[in-house]
């Protein structure tokens, strides 16, 4: 497979969804996303001879994608978890109102996509890898280099923040 462009096209095809998901959720600007995706695959091609089959190819490429995005965000000094979390809102009875009843006539998935963008980039990526790509905590840990326990706890916080964003937004709409 080393150096074989056709085989590499197959690699792109089999991983483009995962890479698209990671980059799409971590990087906001569409032009930046294009450049980053190109960098990811060019780096993958360059380092493919060093791939030792210790992990799945997609996980390895996912790891490259995640690190490339992190480096980009760090250069731009954008928010990363641990540095500048969004404030967690206090528990209140309002938060327990059923989301279904609040947004009965709206597309919940579209709303979620919008509210997901309010979370820190790493949270967005974890949500997408776990809930959309159906990856296990350990696979996500391999991609993000985070311990499984940290992945799990970040996911708990991310879901809580997301739920609060959805509820808060629709409380405001109602007022």
């Amino acid at each position: 497979m080393q150096g074989d462009s056709r085989a590499f096209e197959a690699v792109i095809k089999s991983t483009e969804r995962l890479v698209g998901q990671i980059v799409g959720r971590m990087i906001g600007n569409a032009e930046d996303r294009k450049d980053i995706i190109q960098d990811i695959y060019l780096n993958t091609f360059k380092h493919l001879p060093g791939f030792r089959h210790a992990a799945r190819l997609s996980t390895w490429i996912g790891h490259i994608a995640y690190n490339t995005c992190l480096n980009f965000l760090e250069k731009r000094r954008l928010i990363l978890p641990g540095e500048n979390f969004l404030p967690e809102e206090e528990e209140n009875a309002q938060a327990s109102n059923a989301i279904e009843s609040l947004i009965a006539h709206k597309q919940l998935t579209a709303i979620l996509s919008e509210k997901l963008a309010l979370l820190p980039p790493v949270y967005r990526t974890l949500i997408v890898l776990f809930h959309q790509e159906a990856m296990s905590y350990s696979e996500i840990g391999e991609i993000t280099s985070l311990p499984e326990g940290t992945v799990k706890s970040y996911l708990f916080r991310a879901r809580k923040q997301l739920k609060e964003h959805v509820l808060t937004a629709y409380k405001k709409d109602e007022l």
């Binding site: 969804r17 998901q21 995706i37 998935t109």
Partner: peptide
């Protein structure tokens, strides 16, 4: 799980 995926 039903949110649209962002693809290349």
């Amino acid at each position: 799980a039903l949110m649209p995926a962002t693809a290349v």
